[in-house]
Design a binder for these strands. Structure first.
Length: 827
RNA sequence: GCCAAAGUGGCGGAACUGGUAGACGCGCUGGACUCAAAAUCCAGUGAGUGAAUAACUCGUGUGGGUUCGAUUCCCAUCUUUGGUACCA
């Protein structure tokens, strides 16, 4: 499998060729041959009409970057391709498509620098990506290729946006956004950390933005997670992100003000222990509550908080700060006056922007109380003195919690919660409330290279939808954002302004974020050329859900949450028939560089795909990526290891083209010896099970065992070899096609059906039984399968190496596990 | 801090529902073939004691426990990775 296409060896002295072997496996020739043939014969074109059951296996489609693909990117694609090929051989009608998530910042940044239209950059990158994917021999149905920047595609992205708009799920709002200085654009909350990590500056800044009301779907996004066959950790991450909590809104009457202050708490059971209230600096009452005496200090604190970046206010800052307003509120349970403080640890965007502090039972409140010398009152029975240390446990009972109307004393958490919540509700000072951490999705970006948001702003302030979709991007001279924070589109008057029967208008200059196109692309693969509809309902019903979705764990919340949200909206619109898009999700683990570090340009440890492909060929790369370890695991690349895979493929080749022979060997049509037959059936079972369960590493190892066996036995049995080739075909499609042809087949091996195994031949007929003394292995013996216990016991006592341990000892117990072992407990 | 996952030879990793730990591959050692090399094939390869292909002891992060028997179950603890971070 080395690059050596022809192995000429010259003798330096007499200049004659002394050895030439033409039938060594030449991967580059063979791979090119079969890739061309598959293309020519449309081998992997998905049938539209088919009586077969369907299987939809999807990769997270890539953003075609300028740096090209590296071996890490190929891991998931290889896994999905093996699955696709395997499912085809099992008789499924398989949909296995690929496309491009091609709107995005890098192409635009490049355009700003060089003036190259992002479209050109994108086209070129796609060409390179596609070349690599085709060189890997992936069995995509390329006739369904889609590109999110194609007007025929984003027409429907815009269409979905308008549907959101019609349903009140897309609205404009002046919001504090995460503004990225360098990129001159707004980022989603979910993107901020990533960009900061990349070295960008992100600040808070108020801007008029389009926002999608994902919070309206919070409950459904949470509830429907339960039915998904997804990795538990991804579901958990989404649950945490949605962050549902059940609590109570409580109104605290303000002394000296004719109004009340509403707080949200999940611990109404601790109300008797509330000793002060805290409001966020952005709270509308913040300044109003300041007494004359405190006003200067309060104002200073508020403006100081404004200047702090998000990072300073949340992140690393542990030390709490705050200022007393001078005002008091009344604790509805105790009637005691509680001082109202302002502190930036209270977030305006969550709950009511105000909290009641129970320092005895909340670590943040405890810290704050300590710092400002506020009283700490125990109301949950604590194992230690709450003056010294906070007690946050919920598995205790209430104490010191009673007044004339209500007592919680002695009650565990849930009962105390219920009793207090009901009491507050009857007193009309509280109300049960469910809150979510999830925020609405800031959806606009001040960029050129994105889907234009199809909305017209009229002079009189009304908004109307664009009627002619797609609304395409105009050509521009320069891609720089405007200084006002508007996208480059604001610089194109011809595009920007217009007039129609409703009056003159200005178009929306914001574009959509990159996530938009990937929210629904899996639907378009089903019906990529439909000009009338987003998707044909009948086709949608046949193909959805995605049966297997493979991609990186980095999309656990962003893409996967957004896509689920859109899908649910489309479900409500009747466009799709299912509530959830992805039935089964699988996250492949990252492949690290040879230095055990994440691959990155700066570290210089990136292994480019084309490089290893050129050196070892697609089959070896495919097999090696899968052999590296469990698919879900993070694992380092090791170029040495791929040699072993090359050797394995050469071994398979030599089963049919033995060394020093130019012709394919003649296969034997005789029946197999029983030993080999058992081996083969075991291999079929193991490879089938493991491939089904995406345990490709052990499937490959099993095939290696089988090949070693065939080689050792020198077997040329046709059935055995053909079986091997079919099992191996999803993994190493080119080599197996070539060998399949050379042993006389005229049809592609991808049309061959996966063999079935005979259960009676999978079990061994002769088993090795272990003999233990006191649980330690002391010997073994052979016994036929299904031997009775008595027989095993009797045989075990005859094993020579065991005798000396038994002699002179009393056997206290005899344990016999059929087909496994015999254990003597002696003394 | 909190949540989740994982710790097995020199390395990547295997081991079904508690039943012979280390499959398969890399690497390494020796041998065959060769003038020589490459390729290929054969044998060996967890550690220790032993002349030994005899035998025994130890061994799945660490310390305990349950069990005839634990990589697998329980408790504690350490480390690593991923996620999350004042969400009241």
């Amino acid at each position: 499998m080395q690059v050596t296409l022809c192995c000429f060896f010259f003798n330096i002295e007499d200049q004659t060729v002394i050895y030439q072997h033409p039938m060594r496996y030449e991967f580059s020739k063979t791979e090119a041959k079969w890739q061309a043939r598959w293309q020519q014969h449309n081998t992997f074109k998905t049938a539209e009409e088919s009586g077969k059951p369907k299987y939809y296996v999807l990769d997270m489609f890539p953003y075609p970057s300028g740096t090209g693909l590296h071996v890490g990117h190929l891991e998931g694609y290889t896994a999905s391709d093996i699955t696709a090929r395997y499912k085809r051989s099992c008789g499924y009608n398989v949909l296995h498509p690929m496309g491009w998530d091609a709107f995005g910042l890098p192409a635009e940044q490049f355009a700003i620098k060089t003036g190259t239209h992002p479209k050109l950059t994108t086209e070129e990158n796609i060409r390179s990506f596609k070349g690599t994917l085709q060189a890997m021999g992936f069995s995509y149905d390329w006739s369904r290729e889609i590109n999110t920047t194609d007007p025929g595609y984003f027409k429907w992205t815009q269409w979905i946006f308008l549907k959101l708009y019609e349903r009140g799920l897309a609205y404009m709002s002046e919001v504090d956004v995460n503004w990225c200085e360098e990129l001159k654009t707004v980022l989603a909350n979910e993107e901020v950390e990533e960009k900061i990590a990349d070295g960008y500056t992100v600040v808070r800044r108020p801007l008029r933005q389009w926002v999608l009301k994902i919070t309206a779907y919070a409950d459904r996004l949470l509830a429907d997670l339960d039915e998904l066959n997804w990795p538990e950790n991804v579901k958990q991450m989404q649950r945490n992100w949605i962050g549902r909590s059940e609590g109570v809104d409580i109104d605290f009457e303000l002394r000296c003000h004719n109004r009340s202050l509403r707080v949200y708490t999940t611990r109404p059971d601790t109300l008797f222990g509330a000793t002060y209230l805290v409001i966020s600096p952005e709270h509308p009452l913040a300044e109003k509550l300041a007494t004359a005496q405190q006003l200067i200090e309060v104002k200073a604190y508020i403006s100081e908080a404004k200047l702090k970046t998000e990072l300073e206010r949340t992140g690393l800052q542990k030390e709490k700060s705050g200022v007393f307003t001078g005002s008091y509120a009344i604790n509805p349970a105790t009637g005691e006056p509680l001082p109202v403080w302002i502190s930036d640890f209270v977030l305006i965007s969550y709950g009511t922007g105000a909290i009641m502090s129970v320092p005895a039972h909340d670590s943040r409140d405890w810290e704050f109380a300590r710092q400002y010398n506020l009283p700490i009152i125990e109301v949950i029975k604590s194992p230690h003195d709450v003056q010294d240390k906070v007690f946050e446990g919920k598995d205790s009972v209430s104490v010191n919690s009673s007044n004339n109307e209500i007592t919680l004393n002695g009650l565990p958490f849930s009962e105390a919660f219920e009793r207090m919540a009901s009491w507050l509700e009857t007193k009309k000072v509280g109300q049960r409330k469910v809150n979510y951490k999830l925020r609405d999705w800031i959806f606009s970006r001040q960029r050129y290279w994105g889907e234009p948001i199809p909305i017209k702003h009229y002079d009189d302030g009304t908004l109307r939808q664009e009627t002619a979709l797609p609304l395409v991007l105009p050509e521009v001279e320069a891609y720089h954002p405007t200084s006002t924070g508007e996208s480059p589109l604001a610089n194109i008057p011809e595009w920007l302004y217009g007039r129609d029967e409703h009056g003159s208008f200005r178009r929306e200059t914001n574009t959509m974020p990159q996530w938009a196109g990937s929210c629904w692309y899996f639907l378009r693969f089903i019906d990529p050329d439909n000009r009338e509809q987003l998707i044909d309902p009948e086709k949608e019903r046949y193909w959805m859900n995605v049966d297997l979705y493979i991609g990186g764990a980095e999309h656990a919340v962003l893409h996967l949450l957004y896509a689920r949200f859109w899908h649910k909206v489309l479900f409500d619109l009747g466009v799709v028939s299912s509530k959830e898009p992805f039935k089964k999700l699988f996250n492949q683990g990252m492949i690290l560089g040879e230095d055990n570090e994440k691959m990155s340009k700066s570290r210089g440890n990136v292994i480019p795909a084309d490089q290893v492909l050129g050196k070892y060929g697609a089959d070896a790369v495919r097999l090696y990526e899968m052999f590296l370890g469990p698919l879900e695991q993070v694992k380092p690349w090791n170029t040495n290891g791929i040699e072993g895979i090359s050797r394995f493929l050469s071994k398979v080749w030599r089963l049919i083209y033995p060394e020093h022979e130019e012709q394919a060997t003649r296969l034997s049509e005789d029946a197999m010896p029983e030993e080999l037959q058992r081996r083969m059936h075991k291999t079929i079972k193991k490879v089938g099970d493991d491939t089904e369960n995406l345990k490709f590493n052990t499937a490959i190892s099993e095939m290696m065992v089988f090949v070693n066996e065939l080689q050792k036995a020198g077997s040329k049995n046709r059935e055995a070899i053909e079986t091997l080739l079919i099992l191996l075909a999803p993994y190493a499609p080119h080599l197996t096609e070539e060998l399949w042809e050379s042993i006389g087949h005229t049809e592609s091996i991808s049309l061959a059906s996966f063999p079935s195994f005979d259960p009676s031949l999978v079990e061994e007929s002769i088993l090795t039984i272990a003999v233990q003394i006191n649980g330690k292995l002391r010997g073994t013996f052979l016994a036929p399968a299904k031997s009775p216990k008595e027989f095993l016991l009797q045989e075990a006592k005859r094993v020579e190496s065991v005798l000396k341990f038994v002699e002179g000892q009393t056997i206290l117990r005899e344990i016999v596990i059929p087909e496994k072992l015999v254990n003597f407990v002696v003394k």
